[in-house]
């Protein structure tokens, strides 16, 4: 190893991280070179002084600040993840509506009432909870005998048609009470 290479290793001789073979070569070099020994003394003094310096880090206050920032980040992410819930509910509704239409089409080809279509019942406007699941919505509709005939519109409003013999006020009361699914319901 050249003198220059040895000189380059002196700082790591001082911090004691050299491999044994390199360390042995440095020791040999130091034994015969006063300048290099003076260099080592200087580097050792620098190291000791740096290590003795106390650093006042943020500590527990910094941790509190970090935890607050972490909580805020999580909230933002959580809110960003919520977008799929109403989308999922809307997609489920589309499936239900399409299913209904297909059944109606099939029935239309097979059974045609002589008297024409039965008249529909009253129509309601409902706004659904964004957390509502497809299963809960289906159960709510079945309970009052309603089907979705339109929606969601730009404001997220759905139109439900009750069966002709349904009790309008009772249906509104039942749907209003189902806060898991329905946020708001009114007559059209």
């Amino acid at each position: 190893m050249t003198d220059k290479k040895i000189e380059e290793l002196l700082p790591w001789h001082v911090n004691k991280t050299l491999e044994p073979e390199s360390s042995r070569q440095v020791e040999e070099y130091l034994a015969g070179d006063a300048d290099a020994r003076a260099d080592v003394e200087f580097l050792r003094a620098v190291r000791n002084t740096l290590k003795d310096q106390t650093v006042q880090s943020p500590g527990e206050l910094g941790l509190k600040r970090f935890q607050k920032q972490l909580a805020e980040t999580r909230q933002v992410r959580s809110a960003a993840r919520q977008w799929w819930r109403p989308a999922l509910a809307a997609a489920a509704l589309v499936i239900v509506v399409q299913g209904g239409l297909l059944v109606n089409l099939w029935q239309a080809e097979t059974y045609v009432p002589l008297g024409g279509d039965a008249p529909g019942g009253p129509v309601l406007q409902v706004e659904l909870n964004e957390d509502a699941t497809a299963a809960a919505l289906q159960e709510a509709l079945n309970r009052v005998g309603a089907t979705i005939v339109d929606g969601p519109g730009a404001l997220g409003i759905y139109r439900l048609r009750l069966s002709a013999d349904a009790n309008l006020d009772e249906a509104i009361a039942v749907l209003s009470a189902n806060t898991e699914v329905v946020r708001h319901v009114s007559k059209e």
């Binding site: 006063a34 003076a38 003394e41 200087f42 003094a45 002084t49 740096l50």
Partner: peptide
Amino acid sequence: DRTAAVDLVARAQDAERLSECM
């Protein structure tokens, strides 16, 4: 100059001076 080596070690032990140079 190597003649100042001892003084340099002493100065390297002065935390404030070393910090300034760092």
